[in-house]
Structures are given as C-alpha cells and as structure tokens.
Design a protein around this nucleic acid. Structure first.
Length: 493
RNA sequence: GGGCGAUUAGCUCAGCUGGUAGAGCAGCUGACUCUUAAUCAGCGGGUCGCAGGUUCGAAUCCUGCAUCGCCCA
C-alpha cells in the first residue's frame, strides 16, 4: 500500500473518531450542478441549493476553501468558510481531492462572478482512499482509461458527456421507431445455430441439457420468425457476439439495432435509415457537416445511392462482369484468388478498393446474389440481391435486405457453400426450423441492421470503438502490472 | 502474424553522443476569508516494464519477453 493511501486511511480514521461515517448514507433531494447554475439569477442570491458530487479541485485559502464539485451534469463551485462551518471545520480540513460530498447552502456569486454554493452543511458521502489522477490532464494513459473507466468518467468530463450522449441517442432511436409503430422485442442470445450473419461464434455449454450453445452473432432468424408469427413491425437493440479480432472498429460484443417491416423492401429501409439517422443528427449534433478524425462527413440529405457494380468500376477500375479483369485486380492487390469463387473475389476487391473512399454517407446497393443467401434477388436481374450497406466515414454502418421469404430458395441457399469462404465466414448455415417457419408463410419484408457503436463513433467523433463502449474487452491485466492493484496484502479489517 | 512507437514518482511528462534521477500536479508542514489548474515558503516521495548481455560504469547501447497504441495483413 502506498504512502498516499496510508495518509488517506489515517484521515478516514480521524473522521471516524469524530463520530462521522466516512461512507455517508442517504442524501436525498439533490439537484444537478448544471441546473443549479442554470437557474441562478443575478439579484436573487440567497436561494437554497443542494448538490452531491466529487471534489475535483480544491483551493484552500486558510479560513476559506473553494471546491469544484463535479457530478454527471457538470460542475459547480462550493465555498466553505470557517465562519459558516465553524462546527464542522475539523471535518472540512480533512477533505481531499477525489472525495464524494454532499453540500447544502445558499446560492450566490463570488467577487469574481463565479456562481457558488456557500455551504452551511457539508456531508461526507465517501472518502476516497486512492488519489485522483492529475487534475489538469486527467487520466491520459489509454489502457488505464479503459481498465479504470470508473476513474476516466469523472476525471475526463468529455468521456462522461460522450456516454451520456450515447444513451440519449439510443433513447432517441427507440422513440423514433416506436413513433413509427415498431414494437421492441427480445430474442435469444443463446442459440443452437449461430445464424443470420457471417462470423465465428462464441461457444458455451448448458449443463442442464448437456448441450453446446452459441452466443448469437445476429438476431435475424428469430426476428423473421416473429414476422411469420404476425408481428409486422419489430425491432431489437441488443448485443451480438463475434469471436473475431479486436481493432479500433471491432469489439467482440457490440450493440446492434435490427428491425423488420412486413410488406416493405430495401428501398423502404433506405428511406427509414436516412430519416432515422438524420433525426439523430438534428437532435444531438451540429450537422450536417460532422468531423470524424481527419475526415469531414457531410450528412446533408439526400445521401448518395450507388450500385455496388458502379462503385467497383469507379474505384477498382474493372467491370463486375469482366471476371478476368477482376481477378487480375485481385492479384495486383495481393489477394490469393485462385481458390475463390467469382463472387468472393469480387467482394475482396470491393473491400480493398471502394470502402476507404466512402466518407460521406453512401448507400451501396445491389450486391452479387451469391454473397447474400438471406436476401431476395432483384426481379429485374437475378444476379443481384436487393441488399444495401450504408457506409460513412469509410465504415460499414448498416446492412439491409429485401428479405427472402421463399422457403425453397432459402433452403437451397443454405445448402450452397461458396468456395473461398470458411464455414465461419458464410451466412449459409442450415436451420431446419427456420425453413419450417418460412413454409408457414413469412410476409415479404424489409430488414435493417444498424451498428450502434459505430454510429455513435461517427456522431461523436470517437476515434475508437473503445471510446463508445463503457467497458471494452481488454486482455486481462498481467499480475503485478497494474499500479495500485489490490492484492492479498490488504490487512484492513 | 509483420512494421513502427511507447513503458521513468500516485498522475502528466523531461532526461542529448553511457557517468549513477528531474519538473509540474498530487501529498506532508507552515502562511493566507474571494480562489478559478489559487499563490508563497519548506519537506518527503523511484527495483527507470521484466530478464539477460556489453561495459570500469546502463534509464540510456544490444538481445529476448511482457503490456499498450498506431498502421498493415
């Protein structure tokens, strides 16, 4: 235990000896710091105010102490004067940076114009035994920030604001969809067949039935069963799990909004996507031009709608029907195309050449049908599927189909495995019960998935997905590698 | 998997071609009833990520390992 902690423990004991519980208790009827400041009116000093929060700055002038108290809304200054707090002065002098306190007093301004609660009653809510990070720079070590988000959130106010914004955005999405008549549902996270997307699943074991289960990679096939069941407009916002790599754009568990609308198609999904995200930007951002890293994303409507094949020609310089040209391009890009089927090669080239150019929101439409076993093909040209992906800031943000509802075609698609794709990379996984469901009749439908984490990244200019997930997955800290790690040497009672 | 960079006090960071460790903040003591990263005076605080190697001598050079970040596959 380091010296700083020992000193704080000693103060804690002194406070206990005063008959005060250093870990506080109920402290009702507080007001967010920001709203106290907002309601302050010049000339109406002396109104009551009551706040609770963490001490992030402390300026001790002797018989007068100024404290900056921070809560999730913002910060407010407390003024502690020996004259007003004579009976509590011994406690006041043992307050440290990082302590949680409640304060009640009258609202006023200092000589320099700072809105201040002149405290008449100070309540210690929790004594901090570990010192806070540096007061000006906050917590900067990237790894420590993720591992100790509980410090990051109050040491770096912009982090708090970003996560509050995420929460508000998700609430807006729910409200938007509910206003359009969509009903929120919950479908299984643990599945016997990990279908609905192309990804390697996590496997777990259920002892009671002695069976292996998969954590879902997508809710798609269950949501479509609900279409069969007669639910016409449904959505789910929940976690998917994919047993794949970590990067600034990938976390193995991530949040997906998926929705289905009966009697609609992918064009309806495009309109819905555009209006949903635009309404988010209108409510939560200073659009339509939003920075994203070194990029500038122009969200002004209407968004570009471009055919997959046209983009391939534009950026890869080869026509999609000209397979030798596409394969030559693949080789030039270092893609080992020999064992891959045409559609797989095409997609490899697309990902290598097109994606990094899609900065402004762009609907990429009409994918090669072989890549889309769950999608209805275009009536005009069955080589293409009625699917779009939305890109923005060079990231894939959303994916949508005109859903395939013909059970025989679906079954045939499940049986067809593309060469060049491993089983994990393929969406084609036989699900007999899903076929049975389709045989009962699924209405034609549009389906849409939006990656919530990436959407929040884009709309809050977060450089990494770890900046929008409160507790991103990290390699476990090696033993002894963490400063201040608590271990078995704790001898306190 | 490959490349580059980082790892020094509780936190944020300096530390040159090798000569035995520094600052700011935080902490402790003292002063101060209007501060805004308060100020002033004084004091304490380090297994320089880990393990080897080179050297009279290593935070510094070399090798390996670990962790983190960025880029690439």
């Amino acid at each position: 235990m380091n010296k700083l902690e020992q000193q704080r423990r000693e103060k804690c004991q002194q406070i206990r000896r005063m008959g005060i519980d250093p870990y506080g208790g109920r402290f009702p009827n507080t007001e967010p710091a920001q709203s106290v400041k907002n309601r302050y009116i010049d000339g109406q000093e002396g109104r009551r105010a009551r706040c609770a929060g963490r001490i992030v700055l402390l300026r001790d002038i002797g018989k007068l102490i100024f404290i900056t108290l921070r809560d999730s809304s913002g910060a407010i200054q407390l003024g502690l004067s020996k004259q007003l707090l004579a009976g509590q002065w011994e406690l006041v002098k043992r307050i440290d940076l990082g302590d949680l306190v409640g304060a009640e007093g009258t609202l006023g301004k200092t000589k320099t114009g700072e809105i201040t609660i002149w405290v008449e009653q100070l309540t210690l809510l929790s004594k901090a035994l570990l010192p806070p990070p540096e007061k000006f720079h906050g917590l900067a070590d990237v790894d420590l920030r993720y591992r100790r988000r509980y410090v990051d959130l109050w040491a770096n106010p912009e982090v708090m604001q970003r996560f509050l914004k995420r929460s508000a955005m998700v609430a807006s999405i729910r409200r938007f969809l509910q206003q359009q008549g969509f009903v929120e549902v919950e479908t299984p996270m643990m599945q016997t067949i990990a279908g609905g997307a192309a990804a390697r699943p996590f496997i777990t074991h259920y002892n009671a039935l002695d069976i292996d289960l998969y954590l879902r990679i997508a809710p798609e096939l269950f949501l479509k069963r609900l279409l069969v069941g007669g639910m016409e407009k449904i959505f789910e916002i929940n976690r998917n799990f994919r047993n794949e790599g970590l990067s600034t754009r990938h976390n193995p568990e991530f949040t997906m909004m998926e929705l289905y609308q009966a009697c609609a198609d992918y064009r309806d999904m495009m309109d819905l996507t555009e209006s949903l995200i635009s309404s988010l930007i209108e409510t939560h951002c200073q659009g339509p031009l939003l920075p994203f890293g070194s990029m500038q994303v122009n969200w002004a409507r209407p968004w570009r709608r471009a055919r997959y094949s046209d983009l391939l020609e534009e950026y890869a310089g080869c026509r999609i029907e000209d397979i030798p040209a596409v394969r030559a391009k693949a080789r030039a890009l270092g893609i080992e195309e020999a064992q891959m089927e045409d559609a797989v090669v095409i997609n490899e080239v697309f990902e290598a050449t097109v994606e990094s150019n899609l900065v402004n929101p762009t609907f990429v439409l009409d994918y090669p049908a072989e890549l889309c076993p769950l999608t209805r093909t275009s009536p005009a040209d069955p080589r293409y599927a009625e699917r779009f992906e939305l890109y923005a800031g060079t990231m894939e943000l959303a994916n949508a189909y005109t859903e395939l509802n013909d059970p025989d075609v679906q079954e045939a698609n499940f049986r067809r495995q593309l060469r060049g794709l491993s089983a994990d990379e393929s969406m084609a996984k036989m699900d007999e019960d899903f076929i049975t469901a389709l045989k009962y009749g699924m209405p034609p439908a549009g389906g849409l998935g939006i990656g919530i984490d990436r959407l929040v990244m884009l709309l809050t200019d977060a450089p990494s997905i770890r900046d929008v997930i409160l507790f991103p997955l990290l390699k476990p800290a090696a033993a002894g590698s963490m400063p201040e790690s608590e271990d078995e040497t704790d001898t306190s009672s």
